[in-house]
């Protein structure tokens, strides 16, 4: 019988297999990169809001405490979004004609809440309670990033399960004195100081990492 395959026939399958291997490897690497990328985790992606509220101005430059607006953070699962009245506490007197604040005034006049768009969001199967984290001294900045440096609100950390578990398995370096939870800049704390404080705080509060990564802690 004559030859079935052309002289190049042995090359093409080899090239094909080689390209296939390269493609699969590239796909795996791309996939691995993608799930950690800002595109998927939303880190640093600014979310459109009805009013371009600047945390940089209010929390950073004016130094207003986080809890002035997010009043529920110490006692409730949700930190709480401020009611329109909270904005108007000051803005009834200053920047009263600013076009930027028109939606706020309209909200107050109509009695309809502003519709802010969620920035920091956990999936519904994850149970999260702000109050316990705050009262044990997990500072805001650990999860939300340098909010005081964000002109427009964006997600500061990837809210992946790995992000939660990293801290739950080794909370010590992340803990701070509970009376300073809203402090943003901790650059004067060395790693040793943080670890030392964290160790003592864990002893004082009976924090046991071996229980903190039980499934039922977050998935209830």
């Amino acid at each position: 019988m004559p030859q079935i395959f052309t002289p190049s026939a042995d090359t093409w399958p080899r090239v094909g297999v080689g390209l296939g291997i390269v493609a699969v490897t590239a796909a795996i690497l791309l996939g691995a990169g993608l799930v950690q990328s800002a595109y998927v985790t939303s880190v640093d992606w600014v979310v459109d809001q009805p009013v371009p509220f600047s945390h940089l101005h209010h929390a950073g430059e004016l130094g207003i405490d986080c809890r002035y607006c997010h009043a529920g953070v110490e006692s409730a699962p949700n930190a709480g979004l401020p009611a329109t009245e909270v904005c108007m506490t000051c803005h009834s007197q200053i920047w009263t004609g600013a076009p930027m604040l028109a939606p706020v005034r309209e909200s107050l006049a109509k009695g309809e809440p502003l519709r802010w768009n969620r920035v920091a969001r956990l999936p519904d199967y994850a149970y999260f309670d702000h109050s316990i984290h705050v009262s044990r001294g997990v500072p805001c900045v650990e999860c939300h990033g340098r909010v005081d440096e964000m002109p427009l609100m964006k997600r500061g950390e990837p809210f992946t399960m790995a992000f939660c578990l990293d801290c739950h398995r080794d909370p010590a370096p992340h803990l701070r004195p509970p009376d300073q939870v809203t402090r943003m800049d901790w650059s004067d704390w060395t790693a040793e100081r943080a670890a030392d404080y964290g160790r003592r705080a864990m002893e004082a509060h009976h924090i046991e990492p071996s229980r903190l990564d039980d499934c039922g802690v977050c998935h209830r």
Binding site: M1, P2, Q3, F5, P7, A9, D10, P13
Partner: peptide, 15 residues
């Protein structure tokens, strides 16, 4: 292997 094209396949009675 694989070696799709081999000289012996040239022989007309090769099967």
């Amino acid at each position: 292997l694989p070696k799709l094209r081999h000289p012996v396949f040239d022989d007309p009675r090769m099967s």
